[in-house]
């Protein structure tokens, strides 16, 4: 693959971002980070109050990427089979046979809306799909379409009647993105689009195959020792049980980030380098992806909660204390 091909890839990704940006006003970082997760073959958990356009964002991405899209509204009575699909008895050549009826998970992009409203049993139905990209019903395992990605959303304020995601499931999300309230100017633009008859048409920019090709290319991107060391240092610094852990980790963190966090950081950093038109990972790539890759992977203690210290604040402090060089 030559220099020009990489440049074309980077341009396509940027074009895709621009296309998504037509439908989603503001939230540039969220769009960028979702794109990184797609390129890094990961799943994303979007967290934000209702009405910030989370669902719309996922829809826009599917359209810009020319990928199949399905949406699952998670409710307490949602059953795993409602997600994965089930075997139905159908008549075939005058015989009653079981036939697998694929669930909504069989799509390139799956929007698990308000995932924390479903019971853990149903939530766990997504585990295999997210990690293995397969679904097992009965004794048969079905491969999910490629590329496959789950974009889940959850509401941080309405905790009643919800089932917080277990740590194991949280760890399977490459990124957890916080969708912030738009600025006034952005809000005005949102009004222009949503309360008028103006329709936003999105043109597919990248195909599924191209995404797979990009994923393959990115995996070979070199990472210098110093950069890799920085990424690993950040992950290690979240472990309060280690002697050289930063004070803030020791004070507020109960459980540190898993090795999946390091993988997530490096993979997404590579994707970002490509998007930036580079063939190597820089410190700034690591810094950029560290927060969304780590924030849902550390478990803070009660002291942090009582002090009002969020995971984001802890990670920001860790990043400040961990020097790149």
């Amino acid at each position: 693959m030559e220099n020009n091909e990489f440049k074309q890839m980077a341009e396509k990704i940027r074009a895709c971002e621009a296309e998504i940006g037509k439908a989603i006003i503001g939230q540039k970082d969220v769009i960028r980070q979702v794109m990184l997760a797609i390129l890094a073959d990961g799943n994303v958990l979007l967290e934000g109050v209702p009405g910030l356009g989370k669902t719309e964002l996922v829809k826009a991405i599917s359209r810009a990427l020319s990928l199949t899209f399905s949406r699952i509204q998670f409710t307490p009575d949602l059953m795993p089979a409602d997600v994965t699909g089930t075997n139905l008895i159908v008549k075939e050549n005058d015989k009653n046979v079981f036939q697998f009826e694929a669930g909504p998970v069989f799509a390139n992009l799956v929007l698990a809306d308000e995932i924390n409203r479903a019971t853990p049993k149903t939530q766990s139905a997504l585990l295999e799909a997210m990690q293995e990209k397969t679904v097992t019903v009965g004794k048969t395992t079905y491969e999910l379409p490629k590329p496959f990605m789950v974009l889940a959303t959850q509401n941080p304020i309405e905790q009643e009647g919800t089932y917080p995601l277990p740590e194991a499931q949280l760890d399977r999300f490459l990124f957890k993105l916080n969708v912030e309230f738009p600025t006034k100017a952005e809000l005005k633009e949102i009004m222009d689009i949503t309360v008028t008859n103006r329709k936003t048409e999105l043109t597919p920019v990248i195909t599924g195959d191209e995404i797979i090709e990009m994923r393959t290319a990115i995996r070979d991107m070199p990472v210098s020792e110093a950069v890799m060391d920085y990424a690993l240092s950040l992950v290690v610094a979240t472990h309060s049980e280690l002697a050289d852990a930063p004070e803030i980790s020791k004070k507020y963190i109960t459980t540190g980030a898993s090795p999946r966090a390091a993988q997530a950081i490096v993979k997404t950093a590579k994707a970002r380098a490509l998007m930036e038109g580079r063939f190597n990972v820089a410190f700034e790539d690591i810094s950029y992806v560290a927060l969304p890759a780590l924030r849902h992977r550390i478990l803070s203690n009660f002291e942090a909660m009582s002090d009002g210290v969020t995971n984001d604040a802890i990670i920001a402090e860790i990043m400040k204390e961990t020097k790149a060089i």
Binding site: D220, M221, P222, V223, A226, R278, N280, F283
Partner: peptide, 18 residues
């Protein structure tokens, strides 16, 4: 942006990314 250090570490390598 770590171009030089990465290139220095890839000294002697001739794969496409190097």
């Amino acid at each position: 942006k770590e171009r030089v250090s990465t290139a220095y570490e890839l000294k002697g390598k001739n794969d496409r990314f190097a």
